[in-house]
Amino acid sequence: MEQTLELLSLSPPGWGANLLRGLAASIQIALGAFGFGLIIGFFGAMGKLYGSPWVRDLLEVYTTVVRAVPELVLILILYYVGTDILNNIAGAMGRGPVEINGIAAGIWVLGIVQGAYSTEILRGAIRAIPPGQTEAARAYGMPRALMARRVTIPAMTAFAIPGLANLWLIATKDTALLAVVGFSELTLETRQAAQTTRAYFTFFLAAGFLYLMVTLFSGVIFARIEKWARRGQPSHRGG
């Protein structure tokens, strides 16, 4: 027991600080990817609902492919493709290779994956808005951008929250996959600590506990957001 505490202590020779550093990296990547995914998702949903047939078909291909191919494979493809593209652009501009920050790369690859799921969730949420609300806005002659900001986004938020909460949890857990490509996040830090000290159970359980805390804490936050987003709505349970 004492030995375990020593291994997990925050100052070296303990590895607690490494785990927390990994956790911070994981959360940063998850937040970035979730946000990036939301942006893709918003435009994706708009494209699927109001875009030209071409746009709709292309988006359909995007969401289908991303949702059918394992994240691990997508991560590898996007990682290599992303760095190749960046380097080619830099090369064409006569610059040297671009420094690729692990966190940025993680956000890029997971964001693209998240974007596909976001697209579907937001599309569903927009369609769930009672049509009268958008019709009223249009009747007032509201410009499209203003309508999106004032009517569509606030109204769809309540419908989108449960799906997005789930998606956020997927984002936090998917960061673990980046360990396989050697990004320093919680799972890789855990594994390095476990391999060096041979205390596999201790470290994997500790990391599991950290992930679980993130999950449970997120659950509380999202419940609050949902309550806030549903303010003023008739109290029916749906979504």
């Binding site: 396989v180 490509v181 050697g182 320093s184």
Partner: peptide
């Protein structure tokens, strides 16, 4: 010194 996954 830049650590990279051996695999890649």
């Amino acid at each position: 010194i830049t650590p990279v996954g051996w695999d890649g």
